[in-house]
């Protein structure tokens, strides 16, 4: 009797909750829709305005796209101090090479710690975890003086090669290996007579593909977006990456600025990342939580 009574009580409690849940769900959808607008509104204006001409833009904002997209692009291409296609190419070379080096060598570093037993192993692992959060800016001064002394000013090398030592990528790879690369497989390869370097390249590396893909995207994007270090190293217009060209465009006289070109330049710089994101967003969002929170 007491039992059924408490069951009834739970029943009514549940009904009350489902009524409450509908209200809460409605509130959640309203808030989420608002947040969505807050995130996308700026880019909506950006892409509309990139299609409009300077004279139209001066008249005020409308939601209807204009027909000036190509003209804005051609206008920018006629300005030798803002070589947008060189900027695109430079950004691609630097970000692409960084992504390849960072993922390959971070996997290798993680593999060393994961697979082998050696004296300095624990020390190395702890050391890399500790330096993970030291920002590159604090070593920038010494870095720049060294780069200039090496004669690598205006060169891509100092923007690409340091990617080989990427503690965050290393940490992600190590986490992934712990769950996806059993030592027995490496042992089996040894018995089959595979050399250590070959085992790494032909067995371990392919098994790490999902983690490599996630980290390749993140490294590419952060290098693509990087402003601080490239701004200290790249000096001539033709060697500059897109973020530097944006600053270059901002520096040119603002009053005589063709605003259509400014919007086009911004859209042009962020479009590649947006396109990749449209196709891979699910994969990327899943990837964030995996590496950052331990355990």
């Amino acid at each position: 009797m007491a039992n059924s009574n408490s069951q009834v009580q739970i029943q009514t409690e549940k009904e009350k909750n489902t009524g409450g849940i509908k209200v809460r769900r409605a509130i959640a959808y309203v808030v989420l829709s608002f947040v969505t607008v807050l995130c996308l509104f700026w880019f909506f204006i950006l892409f509309i305005n990139a299609t409009r001409g300077d004279a139209e833009l001066a008249k005020g904002f409308t939601v209807i796209p204009g027909g000036y997209l190509i003209k804005n692009m051609l206008g920018l291409m006629g300005r030798p101090e803002i070589p947008i296609w060189y900027g695109l190419l430079n950004s691609f070379i630097i970000a692409g090479s960084s992504a390849v080096l960072a993922t390959y060598f971070s996997t290798m570093t993680a593999y060393a710690i994961h697979t082998y037993e050696f004296k300095a192993k624990k020390f190395m692992f702890t050391f890399i975890l500790m330096i993970m959060m030291i920002p590159t800016q604090v070593t920038a001064l010494g870095f720049i003086r060294m780069v200039y002394a090496m004669g690598l000013e205006n060169n891509f090398i100092p923007l690409i090669v340091p990617a080989i030592a990427a503690p965050v990528t290393f940490f992600y790879m190590k986490q992934y290996m712990d769950s996806a690369l059993p030592l027995s497989i490496i042992e089996a390869a040894r018995i089959d007579g595979s050399g250590e370097f070959r085992t790494f390249n032909t067995i371990a590396l392919p098994m790490m593909k999902p983690a490599i893909a996630v980290q390749a995207i993140f490294t590419f994007v952060s290098s693509w977006n990087n402003y601080f270090t490239p701004a200290l190293i790249l000096k001539t217009a033709r060697n500059k990456t897109l973020p530097l060209l944006i600053r270059q465009l901002q520096k040119s006289d603002y009053l005589t600025q063709d605003m259509g070109q400014v919007y086009f330049m911004i859209a042009f710089s962020i479009l590649p990342v947006i396109i990749v994101y449209v196709f891979l967003s699910k994969f990327i969002v899943q990837g964030i939580a995996l590496g950052s929170v331990k355990g």
């Binding site: 995130c39 977006n225 330049m265």
Partner: peptide, 17 residues
């Protein structure tokens, strides 16, 4: 996916915008 998008946008481009 939408709320994560701005994290991948070039900060200097976003600031210029």
């Amino acid at each position: 996916a939408v709320i994560y998008l701005p994290n991948l946008i070039m900060a200097s481009a976003f600031a210029m915008l």
